[in-house]
Design a protein around this nucleic acid. Structure first.
Lengths: 338, 338
DNA sequence: ACCAACTCCGTAAACGTTTACGATCGTAGT
DNA sequence: ACTACGATCGTAAACGTTTACGGAGTTGGT
């Protein structure tokens, strides 16, 4: 089936009627509508994306921007796959489709987004891996593109965002570790301009201060947010003069390499060094089991989508109540590691 | 900048000239072209996706289909991200963009693909998680949509594919284990209709036969391709009357859970039970280190893209040599586990 | 019998781009 | 001076859809 025209003359009605029937417009006879729907189904007709988008000025597509290749976020694939599922559950109710806009490691992410937006590829954008200074925020705001971010930034422009509650995580972690007698606590801070690192370390500093402790530079371990990054931290710890007795990881992916590294230098999590991190499908099966923060990824996706829709004029009235900016709660699951 | 019309009258030339200048058409004065390019850059003009696609009958977009939510493929975190990067390296040379078409867990994948194709969303499709019987193959062939698959299927329609060389993996694994004296070898087979399981198990059967051994049903462990799936296998092994002395895993993700499960029942990989699996960023840091098959994911992505382009008339002449159907080699990296 | 109101449907314009076609101008060859 | 030709550009049609507008037919009220 090539187009609406073929479908129309096959049914012996005008293309206008066919279009109205398919789009649920009121002024079309119910019998006619039934025939049109039936024929469209049988012949497998689906309205052409480009024609429809051109005329309507909207694509019906929401883009979730990600970067391929390099380790960027320190989140695993299953992290995003679960979030996607929640996003889609909401979008599907409005006949919106979600696609992942994949920015190659060879292209600048800011340029990539500019290009996609200028092309009019998507009606709305979801950003992740937000940086401390993120030019994408201003750009999207300036061009009035509805968007929502998974993560905050100093360049906040009032758009909806949802971010993991790293503040609460920092506080609870520090409280728990200090309560267990730890005084030298190490913090693993992923390289790069990712915003979450700054938020996390700052709140840790404050939490320590409440116990009269200071966060000294030698207890901050900067590394890449990958398994290898975690491994390097372990080796570094073993070679430092006054190693921390506890470690807090803000990333998901680091912990696998860290465990291996610690084992190689003869340190057992939970016995020789306390570890608090983030739960993940892998972390569940570490040994000793990880003490870490868990969250509902699918619900997070739902909230993201609702936040986005609340900024889109077409759907806004149905999502007025969506919390525009929200820290997403995480709950500590106690394991053997700390 | 709204459209080519504004840009044209700002430069005081016709829209035809602007279009030709931007698209690198020959019959435009070099000085004019320079002015157009400059103005477009300065004003941030990028041709509207819908208008261009409508007129050209091509979108310039390649879609990589994935399913969100559920564990499907048994590939780990960075598997696809690395493949994407290779795909993009090739596509970028032809100004093609890669997006991930995300099929919600609530929608039937076959329906989803139909919908996307009928809408004319992408000029070409890359399929993964191919099933033993995969209706998507016929559908795409019937509609003359260029596509390539990561994985084979019984429903092969002659399209290019690339698949991991599970045959070689099966043979080498069996050879190695039998050579080390193992007679009872277990095979972990992921649930579902995924094609790779069938290919793998069949070749294992053949390899065993060459040593006069038969693959008995009680040595096939079917489970979900997730960490939890691996964990369950370990528990199952411990409860079975005659447990295998070696285990071969065709999936990436299983191994984390398996290790934990084995440890809980007091079995150490490499000492009490031999394990051969697949390398991955996580597997590198398992302890004891995994003996497993590794591959170049980025190059695999490059090959996939080349295979796809060789079927697209616009690009085919530049990729005539692309191997149309190819088993992708994996190399065994020896670890402590088997 | 007439008019109003309503239901249903066809017509045609518009969305932003690309490209076939033809027009214009200058240059060179005879 | 005439023709041929190449270089450059403008014009307009086309892509497939949605939708404002208006027309035809029917109903119902007076």
């Amino acid at each position: 089936m090539k187009g609406i025209r073929q479908l129309a003359e096959h049914l012996d009605v005008s293309i206008g009627t066919v279009s109205r029937a398919l789009n649920g417009k009121p002024d079309v006879n119910e019998e006619t509508r039934r025939r049109v729907l039936e024929a469209a189904e049988k012949l497998g007709y689906v309205a052409n994306q480009s024609g429809r988008a051109l005329r309507k000025g909207a694509t019906g597509v929401i883009g979730f921007m990600m970067q391929t290749g390099r380790e960027i976020t320190g989140q695993g694939d299953t992290f995003f796959m679960s979030v996607f599922d929640g996003v889609q559950a909401v979008l599907a109710r409005h006949k919106l489709d979600l696609v992942a806009l994949l920015c190659s490691s060879e292209e600048d992410p800011d340029d990539y987004l500019r290009r996609m937006v200028a092309r009019g590829f998507a009606d709305g954008i979801i950003l992740s891996a937000t940086r401390r200074h993120d030019p994408r925020f201003e750009f999207l705001a300036r061009h009035h593109i509805p968007f929502v971010t998974l993560g905050r930034s100093l360049t906040d422009v009032g758009q909806p965002w949802i971010d993991l509650d790293f503040e609460a995580m920092a506080e609870q972690s520090v409280e728990r570790l200090v309560g267990a007698g730890h005084r030298e606590i190490g913090f693993v801070w992923p390289h790069g301009d990712l915003n979450l690192g700054y938020v996390f370390i700052e709140r840790c500093r404050q939490a320590l201060a409440r116990f009269g402790l200071t966060l000294s530079e030698h207890n901050i371990f900067r590394t890449t947010p990958s398994e290898m990054g975690g491994y390097r931290v372990a080796r570094e710890i073993s070679s430092v003069e006054r190693p921390p007795t506890a470690l807090i990881l803000v990333n998901e992916t680091l912990v696998t390499g860290l465990y291996r590294g610690l084992q190689e230098v003869g340190l057992e999590p939970g016995r020789d060094i306390a570890i608090i991190g983030r739960q993940s499908p892998q972390a569940r099966f570490l040994s000793p089991s990880l003490t870490g923060f868990d969250l509902s990824l699918r619900d997070l996706g739902v909230a993201l989508a609702e936040g986005l829709l609340s900024t889109m004029t077409t759907y806004a009235e149905r999502y007025p109540k969506a919390a525009r900016q929200k820290l997403w709660p995480m709950t500590l699951i106690e394991g053997e590691s700390g």
